[in-house]
Nucleic acid binder design. Sequence first.
DNA 1: AAACTTTTGGCAACCGATTGACAAAATCGT
DNA 2: ACGATTTTGTCAATCGGTTGCCAAAAGTTT
Lengths: 348, 348
Amino acid sequence: MSEKSSKETSGAATRRNGAATIYDIAKLSGFNPSTVSRALTTPGRINAKTEAKIKAAAAELNYQVNPFARALPTGKTKMLALIIADITNPVFFNVVRGAEAKAAEMGYTLVIAESQESGANEAEALRRITPTVDGILLGTSRLRDEEIQELNKQKPVVLINRKVEGVTDVVPSNEKGIVEAVEHLAKLGHKHIAFLSGPRASWMNTDRWSRLMKNAVARGMTIVEIGPNEPTLEAGRLSLDRVRAAGVSAVFAYNDLMAIGLIREASANGFRIPEDLSVVGFDNIFGSDFTTPPVTTIELKLEKSGNEAVGALLRMIDDPEVTPGDIEKPNHEARLLVRGSTSKAKKA
Amino acid sequence: MSEKSSKETSGAATRRNGAATIYDIAKLSGFNPSTVSRALTTPGRINAKTEAKIKAAAAELNYQVNPFARALPTGKTKMLALIIADITNPVFFNVVRGAEAKAAEMGYTLVIAESQESGANEAEALRRITPTVDGILLGTSRLRDEEIQELNKQKPVVLINRKVEGVTDVVPSNEKGIVEAVEHLAKLGHKHIAFLSGPRASWMNTDRWSRLMKNAVARGMTIVEIGPNEPTLEAGRLSLDRVRAAGVSAVFAYNDLMAIGLIREASANGFRIPEDLSVVGFDNIFGSDFTTPPVTTIELKLEKSGNEAVGALLRMIDDPEVTPGDIEKPNHEARLLVRGSTSKAKKA
DNA sequence: AAACTTTTGGCAACCGATTGACAAAATCGT
DNA sequence: ACGATTTTGTCAATCGGTTGCCAAAAGTTT
């Protein structure tokens, strides 16, 4: 019979964690467990020959540190939390990918939690995850500033899509992309535009709206806010009537999801984009170039942000004295991607 | 002074883990730590009044169990690993979401790792993560069957998109959707079709191809395989010439990514879809209805799969005697979503 | 009221690593 | 060759829980 049916050890026992411990290594190599621990974690502390023997024994036993046993005395878990509002929102794909890649590269494991756009879920997720990780990446917006500052006292925090006083962030600036986009529309002759806004409480929404307003006004355009709205396809779809009613020739959507929803609803209703209305989105999400017309959008390099966020977090973990000011700002900015959803303004 | 400015404690010390332990609760409530532990983990084992007092003390101290300290003696970490090939592949969005939701609901935390379509990364990720989790969800395909069986001996494993002898899976059957799709094309008059295949080593690819072949032949159609290919937009794009050369009137793509790539490349080259060529994808990914025409596709309810996968895994964790046969098969099957990329075959 | 059963709570060992303190061994200076 | 110094390895405590075992306390039975 195979190992599987060894009398009393069925099921449970079969899956026993046969994992080798430093005690096994100690026995095999003839040294003390603490010597083994040192050989494995503090190269140089131990005689080279001894170290080699111990490492050989460890390899032979296929030893793997037990992360929990290690975490107990050290408090370090080599895990990072990434909290995002909605995993299925494509905006986060690249953040996740960038963060995951960097984390893996540095030997860290990413724990991802979704808050489903709900503050309660977010708090709950944080409560559950915080004690198990060395640091937290926040890519969501439902918490109040003070709550984030409070969290930052417990564990290092890096913000991905908003800013909070005293907390490190890697948010790329929207400014450059917005300047380009407003200029682009101005050149096309647009005078009256709108901002189809996202969630009222979102830092990113506020930032985009205020910069848009400033830039539009500076170029002598009028601009109105339509919203707030959920940052979803559906909300974009539902906004068509209000956008038409506003009588503008161009609209900025808070994000591509909304822009896509709006464009598709418009097409479905015989309203022509971009001839009748120019649309600009934000984020350059997956699929934003699939639509007809493809979405002109302001791209943020979110994969880079995810990557940098992990880098910043790791610096803070290594050296708790590091302050937000010490973290160098990401050097990439938003930029305009002109595609098909913008064109000359209709003559008024 | 607030707790913040206690002289010598700057930086590092500020972030001290002031977390309360069961010893603090013991002190506060006047009971023994083991009593506290029991009161908190084995309701009923302890006198109700005592239990209430202890719980009150715990609440007062804002106590949170230290998952690592708990994991050490019990071996249970309340964490689940989800390994996927490519986080940015939209196919997985729903898997992730379904899995995350269920895991959170059951008090488990999901650890997500990406193998980037590489066997080496996958092995490495598993090596790192396996010891820290109670079970593993595998949504990827680069491992050999034996490696998966081996893994399954260490920790419970549930497969999401392939099947392996002796290992639990929640793969929904492609059959129904394929039957519907082939019938759909047959009714439209298609006689000669192709399968734009995905990765050679992929179980899912093989399954789709063999079912497609069987069904097409059964209806008197001819079918050829074009591939293998990477399962990407780009590969779909690059296949256009080969698809045209094959002289078929309809093509199944291994997945929507490839179907979308093909459709977009075709449009860009003045080749009309669906008039000149009908295209059917798989998965119904985000964005597959954004294209012109929107993709006719065979949908798998992957969110459900993710959900069920976690459910199955939890059952296996709770009761190690559970065998793959005990896990009830998902009762949802693939189904055809007819959209715009299929139409009558051109007369030969 | 004595004998017996059930509850309840405490003691102490243990999970698998890390680490400060220290003694033994090795190396060095002269 | 002897004391001083450095290197190396061991001991034992510790991280924060869990749990088997046992004695004391409480409750039941006759």
